[in-house]
């Protein structure tokens, strides 16, 4: 069947319209359907979005085969924006920053699925809250390599790191005192 608009391409879309019981049928190609607005072109993202909300519905407890019910009651709602857990799983989107806290207990499985196993942010920190967090991260990284050095019996290097950690910890203590 050829497209009834352009009469060139084959009709690949068959649309049925019912207005007041009157049925009209249209046979058009994809090109003409787009051109004439029979199908909306804002459909991109549809599949991804649906996939996502599908993921949310996979209750973490049933996935792991546990018998107990999910911790999050469907009625759980964000105190800030009012988004309920039910709505969150349906639309697959957060309503505000507080939603992250509200639904915290159920987020790790979702993030793990979306971000291939990751749940914790690495990378840029806003300048405004930066220095404190950055220091904490540095200390954690130093601790890790210090342990490594100890295991490899490179005690001099480990001691160097220990001093660095002390210095950083002192700095942040002073800062806190200064703040209060």
């Amino acid at each position: 069947m050829e497209c009834q608009e352009c009469h060139i391409r084959p009709a690949t879309l068959h649309l049925t319209n019912v207005v007041n019981g009157q049925k009209t049928e249209m046979h058009v190609c994809e090109h003409c359907a787009k051109e004439n607005g029979y199908v909306s072109y804002g459909q991109e993202g549809y599949s991804l979005h649906n996939l996502l909300s599908g993921l949310f519905h996979m209750n973490p407890s049933t996935v792991q085969g546990h018998k107990h019910f999910s911790q999050a009651p469907a009625a759980l709602a964000c105190p800030k924006c009012g988004l309920t857990y039910n709505e969150f799983t349906r639309i697959g989107k957060f309503g505000c920053a507080s939603c992250y806290e509200t639904f915290e207990d159920n987020l790790n499985p979702i993030f793990r699925r979306v971000h291939s196993g990751n749940t914790k942010h690495e990378g840029k920190i806003p300048k405004r809250m930066g220095s404190g967090i950055e220091k904490k991260r540095k200390i954690a990284a130093y601790r890790e390599s210090m342990q490594q050095f100890i295991q490899e019996e490179e005690f001099e290097k480990a001691a160097e790191l220990r001093d660095k950690i002390r210095l950083l910890e002192q700095q942040s203590d002073e800062q806190e005192e200064g703040d209060s």
Binding site: L52, G92, K93, F94, A97, L107, F111, H121, E122
Partner: peptide, 9 residues
């Protein structure tokens, strides 16, 4: 823990 918070996970 989560970094920059966005509408979509």
């Amino acid at each position: 823990e989560r970094g920059y918070l966005t509408t979509c996970p």
